[in-house]
Design a protein around this nucleic acid. Sequence first.
DNA 1: CTGCCCATGTAAATCGTTACATGATTAC
DNA 2: GTAATCATGTAACGATTTACATGGGCAG
Lengths: 201, 201
Amino acid sequence: MSLRYAILGFLGSTPGTGYMIAREFAQGAGAFWSALPSQIYPELRELEQLGWISGEQDDSDRLGRRLFRLTPVGATALQAWVEAPTDYPPERDPERVKLIFLDRSDPDLIRHHLESHIAHHREKLATWQSMRAAMTDGSHRQMAARLAQRPKREHDLVLLTKLLAYDGNIARAELEIAWAEGAIARLEVLCERQVSKVEQV
Amino acid sequence: MSLRYAILGFLGSTPGTGYMIAREFAQGAGAFWSALPSQIYPELRELEQLGWISGEQDDSDRLGRRLFRLTPVGATALQAWVEAPTDYPPERDPERVKLIFLDRSDPDLIRHHLESHIAHHREKLATWQSMRAAMTDGSHRQMAARLAQRPKREHDLVLLTKLLAYDGNIARAELEIAWAEGAIARLEVLCERQVSKVEQV
DNA sequence: CTGCCCATGTAAATCGTTACATGATTAC
DNA sequence: GTAATCATGTAACGATTTACATGGGCAG
């Protein structure tokens, strides 16, 4: 269900076409929820049938793209969803599954997995740090549009929820990197002990 | 695909029935990959058809339960999968989606969400800490069976990969708690500033 | 005029959840 | 005897990915 509400949330900042939304879920919003065009276009039609969004034909657009807007009913549905208690998805971590069964592999191969883990999260970290930075300078169109709807005294709160979200992701990425570095160190300590045992014999 | 290999991994430690496997994915292995019986039973049949596991009728069992074992072919397939590079699943975090769109809600409600976040991860933390503890004393049957197959000099490595996995999850839970506590503090600072502004007017 | 990105989709397959069915065993 | 747990599933649905189709605009 989250995709549905993530789309509503996006359209709550500013109207958008299917393509714009798809681009967002591949990049910006993709930091928190990712989705492909093939899932987004059908969802938009369902949301329109529900009356939660409405699509106007934009004649100024040379291609016949439709610009979708959040309706008042849609805004209410969105508000109800975000305020309802979260149900947390079950744990599903393919890298952990690999790690626990990697005990029949060469330690070098384990180390290589951990290094890939670090590389993966370094990339995430860089992405999220630059996205966070874009929140605070005025460069983020979405954010500017969202702030423009609200009185000045609420701007700090609007900004804070985004910063908290990015900071959480940044902290997660940093943790994964630190964890994997520690794991490599522990693995190496173990290997050295093994070697010295063998040497003793 | 991970479920398939997680099942193989489990059966690589010790043979098991469908029910035992289902129980494991609801509890023990559920720390890293969770799955329901309705997904596990069909998967077992597919794995048997592939020849990656084999199920023997156990006559000593009053119920006609079948005991599945990993075959050599299955062991090879498992090894190939765990050693192959991981592809990391896309980001999909419903709590973050809620948070970024909670900026139209009362800060008390935001705080309540963050407190639920803490409660959720405190539970996870407790679970994982006790699971980790069970790894190091001899109480874990799976682990004992896995160690029994291997020469003593490899025991440290077998144990290490599990400890690393649990420690990673524990660190994640601690991070989520710390993050949410910090978030509540930042939210309160903001609210106090708002109040004092209003008082000045 | 060729190749690339823009833009909007459909269809099929895969993965996971929810709901339900069934019968046997064990604890109280 | 009755409730809980053991044990094995099936069916339908929902969510997501993969693969494919299509046509317009634009840069070289």
